[in-house]
């Protein structure tokens, strides 16, 4: 069973390759879009690399449930509704949804995707396997 540090190191290597960032930029708090400059196509690239590196399957929308943004039940007038927040908690147990819920603007949605969130997700996948 790999340690948390080993998992983090591999995730860092995957993000360095996918996003062309330096090692020291990939900190647990770093957000993928804000700090590391990820664009939409990069998310699929990251998923592919994680699947290969850790030999896991990541179903579409499980790690990055971007489709929530375009669902009017969950997002209205540029903000997540209570139903949207509840759905986020259910779909993204590895993200800090509580902090996001204080100001649930759709434009801040990307900040949920941090390196730490990916680490927790991968740890759960690897340990389950």
């Amino acid at each position: 069973m790999p340690t948390k540090e080993e998992i983090f190191d591999k995730i860092r290597a995957a993000l360095v390759d996918a996003l062309g960032v330096d090692d020291d930029e990939v900190t647990p708090e770093a957000t993928l879009t804000g700090d590391l400059g990820a664009e939409s196509i990069d998310f699929l690239d990251i998923v592919f690399r994680l699947e290969k590196t850790f030999d896991i399957k990541i179903p579409r929308g499980e790690l990055f449930p971007e489709s929530l943004l375009t669902d009017a039940t969950y997002v209205q007038d540029g903000k997540f509704t209570q139903a949207g927040i509840d759905e986020l908690k259910k779909r993204m147990p590895f993200a800090d949804v509580e902090a996001f819920a204080k100001n649930p603007k759709a434009t801040e949605f990307g900040n949920l995707f941090t390196v730490a969130m990916i680490s927790k997700y991968v740890e759960s996948k690897v340990n389950a396997g």
Binding site: L44, D45, F48, E51, K52, R60
Partner: peptide, 10 residues
């Protein structure tokens, strides 16, 4: 082909 799925391929 390294990876291929319905969304894309590497």
């Amino acid at each position: 082909v390294e990876t291929i799925n319905p969304e894309g391929a590497m």
